[in-house]
Simulated assay, not measured.
Amino acid sequence: MSEQVADVGRGIELTYERQGQGVPLLLIAGLGQQKHEWHDGLVTLLAERGYDVVRFDNRDVGKSTHLRFRPPGPAQLLRKRWDPKQYDLGDMALDTLGLLDALGWERAHLAGMSMGGMIAQTVAARYPARVSSLTSIFSTTGAARVGRPALSTWGRMFSKPANTRDEHTDAAVRMYRHIGSAGFPLDEARIRATAGTTWDRDPRPAAGVGRQLGAIMKSGDRTRELRTITAPTLVLHGDRDRMVNPSGGAVTAAAVPGARLHTLPGMGHDLPEALWPTLAELIDTHIRTTESRSSDAPKH
């Protein structure tokens, strides 16, 4: 795989990688995550099942376009006072749509985790003709009092930003000890390697993460919009998630017509290697079922 850059419009360029051939599948990363947090092993499993898999850096992370305004602080987030340049999930959905255009994909299956699930939901709601199916992984609707981080998680989110690569990797280990999948062994070596790659591609990432968090908070409660989604939807959530409470998965599935909720015991707010085959199988089965129903539909 080699990195490529797509001009998605409005002054935004997104860096992406592509693997496999076949059915178009776009993977959308979460808050502060870069494309490689859709881990190589999981991407390979999906590609081997016959998918043309694309993963990418959202705006403000990795090697995609970074905005330059000051990110909102805790007080601004609480008071919902936004910089005039603060974007929202709708803007990030337009970025995603621009990437589909750049890839020449009329339609694609979307899978998003955490904030990436929110972006995928927004694309599916606003641009239904472009979405073949939706898989929303440990995400939520933005509704109050559900799907929220634990109080102990908020404190970690607003801890002092790292100034060095070592500080960044240490902080990643501490965070995933807290929000990771408690039902599975913690792979500290992989966490450090992933965090190191993140730092190498985008040192001092805190500002971009803050602007992305502003996008989530600015977008507010999207439940009404999710009720308009027509794409076949699978909602995946762990029962040990301290970043997005499992209630977030429940309300997402309840909001999207016909959505199916699948709870993964022991999973937190990460994708442990032990679950990669299960995740690949769940996503593949969902997409294959969707493709089968589409091919069986009466032609007009």
Rank of each mutant, 00 (worst) to 15 (best):
S2Q: 12
Q4F: 06
D7Y: 03
G9K: 02
R10P: 06
I12V: 13
I12F: 00
T15R: 09
Q21V: 05
Q21D: 08
P24S: 13
L25I: 11
L27K: 09
A29N: 11
G32D: 01
Q33F: 14
Q34A: 11
K35R: 15
K35E: 13
K35S: 14
W38A: 02
G41D: 14
V43D: 03
V43K: 03
A47N: 02
F56R: 00
F56G: 00
N58T: 03
T65P: 00
F69T: 05
R70P: 11
A75I: 05
L77S: 08
K80V: 06
K80F: 04
K80S: 11
R81E: 15
W82I: 02
K85Y: 15
G90N: 10
T96S: 10
L97D: 00
L99M: 01
D101I: 05
A108S: 11
H109S: 10
G112M: 09
M115V: 14
M118L: 12
I119P: 00
A120W: 10
A120D: 13
T122N: 12
V123K: 00
A124D: 00
A125Q: 01
L134P: 01
T135W: 09
S136N: 12
F138K: 04
S139Q: 15
S139I: 15
T141R: 08
G142F: 12
R145D: 10
R145I: 04
V146R: 03
V146M: 03
G147C: 05
R148L: 13
A150L: 13
T153R: 10
S159Q: 08
K160N: 06
N163W: 08
N163C: 12
T164D: 07
D170R: 11
A171R: 14
A172L: 05
A172R: 02
R174A: 15
H178G: 09
S181K: 00
A189D: 10
R190I: 07
I191M: 06
R192D: 04
R192V: 09
T197E: 06
T197Y: 04
T198C: 08
T198V: 08
D200S: 04
R201F: 09
D202G: 06
D202Y: 07
D202W: 07
R204A: 12
A206L: 14
V209S: 08
V209A: 09
Q212M: 05
M217N: 02
T223D: 13
R224K: 14
E225M: 13
T228N: 13
I229W: 02
I229R: 02
P232L: 06
T233G: 01
L234W: 03
L234Y: 03
V235S: 01
G238F: 08
R240L: 04
V244R: 06
N245M: 08
P246L: 09
A250T: 04
T252S: 15
A253G: 07
A253M: 05
A255R: 14
P257L: 06
T263G: 04
G266W: 10
M267P: 01
H269K: 04
H269W: 03
T278Y: 04
L279Y: 11
A280T: 11
E281V: 05
L282N: 06
L282E: 12
I283C: 06
D284F: 12
T289L: 05
E291T: 03
E291K: 01
E291W: 01
S292K: 05
S294L: 07
A297Q: 11
P298H: 11
